[in-house]
Design a protein around this nucleic acid. Structure first.
Length: 223
DNA sequence: CCTATTTAAACCAAAGTGGT
DNA sequence: ACCACTTTGGTTTAAATAGG
């Protein structure tokens, strides 16, 4: 038993950073170097430092700067996890954030040492994570899935230029089920007419009919 | 003739559309 | 929601042509 318990909870941010790699939804994990849970994989995160961070979002960006050589295109607050027992160090309040990262830039993860950072399968990795991160991650996946289910487009996971088939495939991977092409495109027209636009004269060429390339109109997009 | 090169038609995979 | 159709351009195959 420790001598004295802190009077206040400590506040942390946790980040579930998603991307698509090899047709699967991946999440960024880091290996903890210090106790508690030294050597365990965990979602990247860190304590809020009031003298450095004006807001929680500042803390998110500060924490992630060390892992990425690129800035996060998009971050969303998901929910909080709190309690006296979820962290052995004491009463903690952590704010889960979900972030998306472009699939064509996953090498921008600055794996200082490769053993420190990895893209793990967001759904299948049954390995134990530090703290209650298994549950936290599940919550993040569920949040992303719900958004896409409601019609949001995870454009931040796509390259700058993408085809509609790519976009649909990305949604399918997130949702874990296949979608109907016709219905998908109809919905795009109805819900996202102004959100994405064709890049005139630019096509993805392959062995098949060239596919129109599109781009996101705004930097940020999920609805 | 036989072979190399050009031209063309047939084929295929995926894009994109429309009907029920 | 489901499926079939049309469109498109690359790929493959085959035929036509030329050069020796």
């Amino acid at each position: 038993m420790s001598a004295e318990k802190p009077l206040f909870p400590f506040v942390t941010v946790d980040v579930a950073l998603f991307t698509i790699e090899e047709q699967r939804l991946k999440v960024l994990l880091v290996k903890r170097e210090e106790a508690p849970y030294a050597g365990c994989w965990a979602l990247p995160g860190g304590a809020l430092k009031p003298h450095l961070d004006g807001t929680l979002l500042d803390a998110v960006h500060r924490v992630m700067e060390r892992k990425l050589s690129a800035s996060l295109p998009w971050v969303e607050e998901v929910c909080t996890f709190n309690g006296a027992n979820r962290d052995p160090r004491g009463w903690s309040l952590s704010v889960l954030h979900m972030a998306l990262f472009p699939m064509d830039r996953i090498q921008a993860v600055a794996g200082l040492r490769v053993s420190e950072v990895k893209w793990a399968d967001a759904e299948l990795s049954l390995e134990a994570l530090a703290f209650d991160h298994r549950r936290v991650l599940e919550r993040a996946v569920q949040h992303l899935r719900n958004s896409v289910e409601r019609g949001a487009l995870p454009l931040q996971m796509l390259p700058q230029k993408f085809t509609l088939t790519q976009l649909q495939k990305t949604c399918e991977i997130v949702l874990g089920k296949s979608l109907d092409k016709s219905a998908f495109r109809r919905r795009l027209k109805e819900l996202h007419a102004g959100d994405i636009e064709e890049i005139e004269g630019e096509f993805e060429r392959g062995v098949q009919r060239p596919a129109q390339l599109w781009k996101a109109v705004k930097a940020m997009l999920i609805k």
